[in-house]
Amino acid sequence: MKKRGKGIGSIFYGTGYGNGFPDVSRSVAVLRKDGKVKIYTGATEVGQGSKTVLSQIAAETLGISIEDVIFICEDTSITPDAGTAAASRQTYNTGNAIKKSCEELKRKIIDVTVKASGADAWEEINLRDVALNHKGQILKGEGEFIAETTEMKDETGQGNPYWPYTFNVYGVEVEVDTTNGVVEVIKAVCAQDVGRAINPKLIEGQMDGGFAMGLSYALFEDLNIKNGEIKHNKLTNYLIPTAMDVPDLEKIIVEDPEATGPYGAKGIGEPVMIGVAPAILNAIYDAIGVRITELPATPNKILLALKKKREVAL
């Protein structure tokens, strides 16, 4: 018999290294000879879209188009350290560093331009002309951002370990086949707090990816470790979802700008996957009245739990 149920998963996530550990990002913005702006930073593009989002922050700050931002992040010998591409920290931390470096570059450009021509409105300044008129002079701005975090007390764990916090809520509807134990997610909604969306499409991409990864954590992934040995060590036995297993996700971006974020943005790379598994587990209970307390919720575990429930009822 197929039974349906709904479940919700609601979470918070603290950005950054945490607990007072120095969490520093750096950026250098340089005006190029052709009027384009180079951004040098050690922030890695791991596929999450940081190169694009961080370029947008630079373009916004300088009032130029994203095509005029040259983003360099691949070489330790020419880029400043911007910390790791982790802890959902690059948009927030390095975004702030880039914004600062661009603001400083902007001040310097205004400074030399006002001295030279008397132009005072940023909109009247043509960066190509500035670069031409100041050949031989390197116009650059440097930016550093240090995240807010304090070390917690040893005995009580009290303190302000992270900032900011990001919120995520998933709701799912599942269909559980009580004859074979298969759980199918048939409907899913995600509401993601983003502070401010720098690039909504990229946020939606993260939500889709996070949903698939969370669904996989809830229902499929099992390394089958026996006496320290990973028995499921290839993609023929370590199951991850295909497009057939992942339904369309309804995506809701919730904007509530964070005062300390670049243009109000917060990091979302991790939060987007966290609410999925608990929502699925709650939906399974709603459908068939059994709590799966050990991941993954494989057909075998579902059938065993149902059997146990029937035995208790007898």
Partner: peptide, 29 residues
């Protein structure tokens, strides 16, 4: 629980309500 005061940008209620509405949670059986 660590004693930290959440001073800005806490749209959790909005997120919960948005999901509840889209999934029709009022009719949970």
């Amino acid at each position: 629980a660590t004693g930290q005061i959440l001073k800005d940008s806490v749209p959790l209620r909005q997120c919960i309500e948005a999901v509840a509405e889209k999934l029709g949670f009022s009719v949970v059986s």
